[in-house]
C-alpha cells in the first residue's frame, strides 16, 4: 500500500480525515485545558496565600 492511497482512503478522505482530526484535536484540547485549569488554580491559591500573609 502506498502513501497517497492511504491518504486518499478510497475516496472518503474528505470525511475521514476531518473526523480523525477533530477527535484528536478535542483530545489534545481537553488535556491542555485541564492542565491550564490546574495551573490557574495553583496560581490563584498562591495569590490567596500571599494576601493572607500580608494581612496577618
Amino acid at each position: 500500500m502506498n502513501l497517497s492511497d492511504f491518504f486518499y482512503m478510497g475516496g472518503y478522505a474528505a470525511f475521514l480525515w476531518p473526523a480523525y482530526g477533530l477527535v484528536l484535536s478535542v483530545l489534545v484540547y481537553n488535556v491542555w485545558s485541564a492542565r491550564r485549569a490546574h495551573q490557574e488554580a495553583r496560581r490563584a491559591a498562591v495569590r490567596r496565600l500571599q494576601m493572607e500573609e500580608t494581612r496577618s
Binding site: 485541564a34 492542565r35 485549569a37 490546574h38 488554580a41 495553583r42 490563584a44 491559591a45 493572607e52
Partner: peptide, 17 residues
Amino acid sequence: AVLFVRLRAEVIRRERN
C-alpha cells in the same frame, strides 16, 4: 488522566487555608 488533572485543580480550588 484528564479527570485526575481536573480533580487536582478542583481540590486546590476548594481547599481553603
